[in-house]
Lab assay of single mutants.
Amino acid sequence: MTTFKLIINGKTLKGEITIEAVDAAEKEKIFKQYANDNGIDGEWTYDDATKTFTVTE
């Protein structure tokens, strides 16, 4: 398992979430669903070196 981080830079929601997953593709799906469930629609980036997804509205 690898630890992945999501950084949220939303208009109404900001924060960080850290979760373990098998791979980045699995985690991306979970993070995007979390963002969608919380009304966050923005630009996504991924840094493989730090295993960090960022979504910015």
Score class of each variant (00 low, 15 high):
Glu43Gln: 10
Gly39Gln: 07
Trp44Arg: 00
Thr45Asp: 04
Ile8Ser: 01
Asp48Ala: 09
Ile8Arg: 00
Thr2Cys: 15
Ala25Phe: 12
Ile7Asp: 00
Asp23Phe: 07
Ala24Leu: 12
Glu20Lys: 12
Ile30Phe: 12
Val22Ile: 09
Ala35Lys: 02
Gly42Ile: 10
Lys32Asn: 07
Glu16Ala: 09
Asp23Ser: 12
Lys32Gly: 04
Ile40Met: 05
Ala49Lys: 07
Thr2Tyr: 15
Lys5Asp: 12
Glu57Gly: 08
Ile19Pro: 01
Asp23Tyr: 10
Val22Gly: 07
Asp23Pro: 07
Thr54Gly: 01
Leu13Cys: 15
Phe31His: 00
Glu16Thr: 13
Lys27Trp: 15
Val22Leu: 09
Asn36Ile: 14
Met1Ser: 08
Gln33Ala: 10
Glu16Asn: 05
Asn36Ser: 13
Asn9Pro: 00
Ile19Gly: 08
Ala25Ile: 11
Glu57His: 10
Gly39Phe: 06
Thr45Ala: 06
Asp48Asn: 04
Asp48Pro: 09
Thr52Cys: 05
Ile30Glu: 03
Lys14His: 12
Asn9Ala: 07
Ala35His: 02
Lys29His: 09
Gly10Trp: 11
Gly15Asn: 07
Tyr34His: 01
Tyr34Ile: 13
Phe4Cys: 15
Ala21Cys: 15
Asp37Trp: 09
Thr18Phe: 12
Ile7Ala: 01
Thr45Trp: 06
Phe53Met: 06
Asp23Met: 06
Thr12Glu: 11
Glu57Leu: 15
Phe4Leu: 08
Asn36Gly: 07
Ile8Phe: 11
Ala25Leu: 10
Glu16Lys: 05
Thr56Phe: 08
Glu57Thr: 14
Gly42Ser: 02
Leu13Trp: 15
Thr2Pro: 11
Ile30Lys: 04
Gly10His: 03
Lys51Gln: 07
Glu57Met: 14
Trp44Ile: 04
Asp47Tyr: 02
Lys29Val: 08
Asn9His: 06
Asp37Asn: 04
Tyr34Asn: 01
Glu20Ile: 13
Val55Cys: 11
Asn38Pro: 02
Glu20Thr: 10
Ile7Met: 03
Leu6Lys: 00
Thr3Trp: 12
Tyr46Val: 01
Glu43Ala: 09
Lys51Trp: 11
Glu43His: 09
Asp47Gln: 00
Asp37Gly: 04
Asp47Phe: 01
Thr54Ser: 05
Trp44Met: 03
Ala25Gly: 12
Glu57Pro: 11
Ile17Phe: 13
Lys51Pro: 02
